[in-house]
Simulated assay, not measured.
Amino acid sequence: MHIIFYTKEVCSLCDDAEGLLSALESEYPHTIEKRDIYTKDEWLEEYQLLIPVVEVNGEQLNCEQINYDSLKALLHKHQKRD
């Protein structure tokens, strides 16, 4: 599964969210595409007060929504089923 992770340098909340994603990787294998919001004006405008933002298949969780349970539920929902 592919995760888009909106972040910035020196962001403790981002570090925490990335740690949670790492903890869930064995159960929900994924790749992370990090997007620094300061590299694109559109991202900065949209996500400045919301980072970190985790996006999977267009569904997003922002800084106020991210915790272990919400990330696990998001990954579970979008996990490919055989």
Rank of each mutant, 00 (worst) to 15 (best):
D82R: 08
K80R: 10
R81P: 04
V54F: 09
E46F: 08
S22L: 12
H30T: 06
S70A: 03
R81G: 06
T31D: 09
E18V: 00
V56T: 04
N57G: 08
K72A: 06
C14T: 13
Q48A: 11
G58D: 07
Q48L: 11
A23G: 14
K77C: 06
E18M: 01
E55N: 14
E59G: 02
E33W: 08
W43D: 09
Q48T: 03
P52S: 03
E27A: 10
C63L: 14
P52G: 08
H78G: 02
Y68H: 15
Y38C: 04
A23C: 13
R81N: 07
T31I: 06
K77G: 02
A17W: 02
T31V: 10
L20C: 09
T31R: 12
H2Q: 15
E59R: 05
Y68D: 13
T39N: 10
H30W: 03
H30F: 07
Y28Q: 00
H78R: 06
N62M: 09
K8T: 09
A17V: 05
T7F: 09
V54I: 10
E18D: 09
R35V: 09
E33G: 11
L21R: 15
R81A: 10
I4A: 01
L49R: 13
W43S: 00
D82M: 05
V54A: 07
I37F: 04
L49A: 14
D69P: 02
S12A: 15
E64H: 15
D41K: 05
Q65V: 05
H76K: 14
I37T: 07
P29F: 09
E9I: 00
V10E: 13
D16R: 08
L49P: 10
W43G: 02
I4P: 02
E18A: 03
K80H: 07
D41S: 03
C63F: 14
E45M: 03
P29I: 11
L71S: 07
N67E: 06
D15S: 01
L20S: 13
A23M: 14
G19N: 12
D82Q: 10
V53T: 12
I32F: 04
D41V: 07
L13P: 15
I4D: 08
K80F: 00
P52K: 06
L50T: 07
L50M: 13
L13R: 15
A23H: 13
L61F: 00
S70D: 06
A23R: 15
R81E: 09
K80I: 05
D41L: 06
I37Y: 11
N62C: 08
A17R: 04
L13S: 15
I4H: 00
N57V: 05
K77Q: 10
E64W: 14
I51D: 14
P52A: 04
Y38A: 01
Y6Q: 10
M1T: 05
E25I: 03
L75H: 01
I51S: 13
V56I: 13
I3E: 02
N62Y: 05
E42S: 07
E59N: 02
L44I: 03
I3R: 05
D36T: 14
K80N: 01
K77P: 01
Q60H: 01
H76I: 04
G58R: 03
C11Y: 08
E55L: 12
T31P: 05
C14E: 12
V56R: 13
R35W: 02
I37S: 07
C63S: 15
E18I: 00
C63P: 11
F5I: 02
K34R: 12
V53A: 08
K40E: 12
R81L: 08
C11A: 06
